[in-house]
Structures are given as structure tokens and as C-alpha cells.
């Protein structure tokens, strides 16, 4: 790995940028929802306070493979999201590799799988119900997510992220971006697709048995997930080129705009049941995604 790859992994858009940015986006979401409900909302450093406090909590002592696995899942989520962030083509300077888009999709999916496994490993009945809900929801929204990514890849004729970045005149590109935006609430477990971690209903879903530092790692992974998913859309719509600092500022601005949009959706909707969520993705969004992809393939063969 060369120096620019290391900078991407550890500095921008990697961990040094993404951890504070993730906290900032989580605060932005809470604050925006609070303002929409005519509340004042939390202070800006609230996610940081929560994280540090969780690090200082004593956790229940567990032994055996279950204890190791419960610690492994959040760590694996954070690592895979750090990898996904390093792949994001914020500055498409040609250091990507052929097919890195497929790796990005896999790395973005790993936290969801870890979340499901955490629920089953915890042995809590609420964790298991939450894990089943997350698994079903993941199957539902990934159909649309993958079709959206493939639509963009077909219109640009490549899976290389550096070439996918930036806006395009092709309508297939924008339909793909719209498809990804439709999937983000389910991937971030926001309303109306928050059924897998439905608080007060199934306690905290798969995270019911988590405490202290491991729970803090989940919060961290959630923040990184925000940065990675909003960042993916931002790289697909932002024009390529220009000074790097203007590009970085635009990247954060567009991502934060998406955070506000998702907060508005989250504040305006109630929680869908699992069946409703699947119906939304398989009946409406999937039809749209299939139409987008078939038109993209048709356009490709015509040209």
C-alpha cells in the first residue's frame, strides 16, 4: 500500500476524519429531529460524552467463546467500515483498483451481518428477535442497493470507484443514486425502517446484552456507517476536479445535507412493521431499480 492509501485509511476520509465526523452527523441527526419537534436537543459534544462514558463503565464478566465473539462483532464492524471509508473515491486520483466497487459493497454489508450475529450470540430473546428482523430487512434492502450499484456500474461501464465518482449526464446514474438513498434509512436503522432495534418494543434489539466499551464500539461503528453511506452518495454526485480543500468541504457539506434529509424523513415517519418494510423495498423500490437497470443495459447496447 502506498502513502496516499495510508492517508486515505487513517486521515481523510479514514479514521481521523471519520470518527469526529460520525459523532457530528449523529449529533446533527438528533439536533435536527429535536428542532423539528420544537425541542432544543443535545449539545454538540453529546456523542463524544456518551462514547467516553461508555469506555469508563464496568462490563459484566463473561467467559468462554461467547464473550470473545461479543467483543469481536463490534470491532469487526469498525474495521470493515474503516476499510470502506479508505476505498471511497473522495479524490479520484487513480489509486483505486479494478473492481473495488464490489469490495466496497461487501465492506458496507459486513456491519449488518455482525449486528445480526451479535443478536444471536448474546442469547437474549430480544437480541434474537432483533437479529431476525435485521436479517430480513437486510435481504429486502440489499436487493435494491445492489441493483442501484449495478445500474451505476452499467452506465459507467466499470466497477472501478474512481471512474464511478462524479456526476454524469446519464439518467441511469441518477436513478442509481436515488436507489442508494432509498436504502440508507434501512442500513442506518432509522425511522421508518428502525424495526430491528425498536427501542422499548424489543428493548434494544441485538444490542440488549451489550454494555460499556463494547456498546461504545457499536456507537462508533454507527457513526462510521453514517459517514461511509452518506459519503458514498456524496462522491457519486460531486463533480470531480478542482482544489482538494474545496472538494473536501463540499464532500462534508453534501454528506451533512443528506444527514438533514434523512433526519427529516426519520422525524416525519413512524416505525413500519417488518412486513411493510419488505413490501416497500420489494414491491416499489425493487420495481424502480429493475427498470433503472434494464434501461441502463438497453442504453449500453444501443450506444
Amino acid at each position: 500500500m502506498n502513502a496516499s492509501g495510508l492517508i486515505q485509511l487513517f486521515v481523510f476520509p479514514g479514521l481521523l476524519f471519520a470518527i469526529p465526523a460520525g459523532w457530528f452527523y449523529i449529533w446533527g441527526e438528533h439536533k435536527a429531529v429535536a428542532r423539528m419537534q420544537q425541542r432544543i436537543g443535545p449539545p454538540m459534544l453529546q456523542p463524544f460524552y456518551d462514547f467516553v462514558k461508555l469506555l469508563g463503565k464496568r462490563t459484566p464478566s463473561r467467559r468462554g467463546i461467547e464473550a470473545d465473539l461479543l467483543r469481536l462483532w463490534p470491532a469487526l464492524s469498525v474495521l470493515s467500515l474503516a476499510g470502506a471509508l479508505a476505498l471511497l473515491p473522495v479524490f479520484p486520483s487513480g489509486h483505486g483498483f479494478s473492481g473495488d466497487g464490489i469490495l466496497l459493497v461487501a465492506l458496507l454489508e459486513l456491519p449488518s451481518i455482525c449486528f445480526i450475529l451479535a443478536g444471536f450470540t448474546s442469547g437474549s430473546i430480544y437480541g434474537e428477535i432483533g437479529a431476525i428482523r435485521e436479517a430480513v430487512l437486510s435481504v429486502a434492502n440489499n436487493l435494491v442497493f445492489l441493483l442501484a450499484i449495478v445500474t451505476i456500474a452499467v452506465t459507467e461501464k466499470t466497477f472501478r470507484l474512481g471512474d464511478l465518482a462524479g456526476p454524469s449526464w446519464n439518467p441511469g446514474h441518477w436513478l442509481g443514486v436515488f436507489g442508494i438513498l432509498l436504502c440508507i434509512p434501512a442500513k442506518l436503522r432509522l425511522n421508518p425502517f428502525s424495526t430491528s432495534s425498536a427501542e422499548q418494543e424489543i428493548y434494544s434489539g441485538p444490542l440488549t446484552e451489550y454494555a460499556g466499551a463494547a456498546l461504545g464500539m457499536w456507537e462508533l461503528a454507527h457513526g462510521l456507517e453514517w459517514v461511509a453511506l452518506t459519503g458514498l452518495v456524496a462522491t457519486l454526485v460531486l463533480p470531480v476536479g478542482g482544489p482538494w480543500w474545496i472538494h473536501a468541504i463540499l464532500f462534508v457539506a453534501v454528506s451533512f445535507g443528506e444527514v438533514l434529509l434523512l433526519s427529516a424523513v426519520s422525524a416525519a415517519t413512524a416505525r413500519f412493521t417488518l412486513q411493510r418494510s419488505i413490501q416497500f423495498y420489494w414491491r416499489w423500490a425493487a420495481v424502480l431499480a429493475v427498470l433503472a437497470m434494464s434501461s441502463a443495459i438497453y442504453m449500453r447496447f444501443r450506444s
Binding site: 420544537q38 436537543g41 434494544s204 440488549t208 451489550y210
Partner: peptide, 21 residues
């Protein structure tokens, strides 16, 4: 509720006793 809004003090009602302080 919006009238008292304890979220501004960082207070959060958790679903699981494991998460609570």
C-alpha cells in the same frame, strides 16, 4: 416531551438496563 426536553442535558431513556447509568 418538548416542554421539558431532558435530551439537552444528555438524559436518554434506554431500553436495556445494561446500557443505563
Amino acid at each position: 416531551s418538548p416542554r421539558y426536553d431532558v435530551e439537552q442535558l444528555g438524559i436518554h431513556l434506554e431500553g436495556s438496563p445494561r446500557h443505563a447509568d
